[in-house]
Computed example of a mutant assay.
Amino acid sequence: MGMDKNVTFNVSGGQLNVASESATINATQNNGVSGDELDSIVKNILENLSELKKENAEGIIDIIDITKEELAKSQPKVSRLRNCVTLIAPMMTIANGIPVLATNLQKLQEFIMPFIK
């Protein structure tokens, strides 16, 4: 590729794309987050909130929203993810008696942990 031609550099997170002239690049950035796994965990949590008080269910939904928002970023903020893990802990007590909910809250915590170490 000759550098004397029209060259475009695109940097996103840790990924660099270089295109010359009118080239098209189709790229996927894999930052280690499995969207399918996270979606499955979230789905199982949301399906089991009906037995909780409204404010507790809303608290769990807020944690999920923050987690998903942060993990969608190319460089998630460790402090926000750490807060999510901290906030999930008391929800485990609230989920006592709803095994699927408790199990999936635990899975969500475990899913987040590699990003805060």
Rank of each mutant, 00 (worst) to 15 (best):
M1K: 04
M1C: 07
M1R: 02
G2Y: 02
M3Y: 10
D4Y: 10
K5C: 09
N6S: 14
N6G: 11
N6V: 12
V7T: 11
V7M: 06
T8Q: 10
T8A: 08
T8R: 08
V11I: 12
V11W: 06
S12K: 08
G13H: 06
G14I: 00
G14R: 00
Q15V: 11
L16I: 08
A19H: 06
S20E: 06
S22G: 15
A23L: 06
T24N: 07
I25N: 05
N26S: 11
N26Y: 11
A27R: 02
T28W: 00
T28C: 00
G32Q: 04
V33G: 01
S34I: 01
L38R: 09
D39A: 13
D39P: 11
S40Y: 10
I41Q: 13
K43S: 11
K43G: 08
N44R: 10
I45R: 03
L46N: 12
E47Q: 10
N48T: 10
L49P: 03
S50K: 02
L52M: 03
L52I: 02
K53S: 05
K54C: 00
E55S: 12
N56G: 07
E58V: 03
G59N: 07
I60D: 04
I60L: 04
I60C: 05
D62G: 13
D65M: 05
I66N: 03
I66K: 05
T67V: 04
K68N: 07
E69G: 11
L71V: 07
L71A: 09
L71C: 08
A72K: 14
A72E: 14
K73N: 14
Q75W: 00
P76N: 02
V78T: 09
V78Q: 08
S79C: 03
S79H: 05
R80A: 14
R80G: 07
R80Y: 14
L81T: 00
V85M: 15
T86H: 09
T86Y: 13
I88T: 15
I88L: 15
I88R: 13
A89T: 15
P90L: 07
M91T: 07
M91Y: 04
M92F: 08
T93K: 10
I94K: 01
I94A: 04
A95D: 02
A95L: 04
A95M: 03
A95T: 01
N96W: 10
N96H: 13
G97V: 09
G97N: 07
I98L: 10
P99I: 02
L101Y: 06
T103W: 04
N104K: 08
Q106T: 15
Q109P: 15
Q109V: 14
F111I: 11
F111M: 12
F111W: 13
I112T: 11
F115L: 05
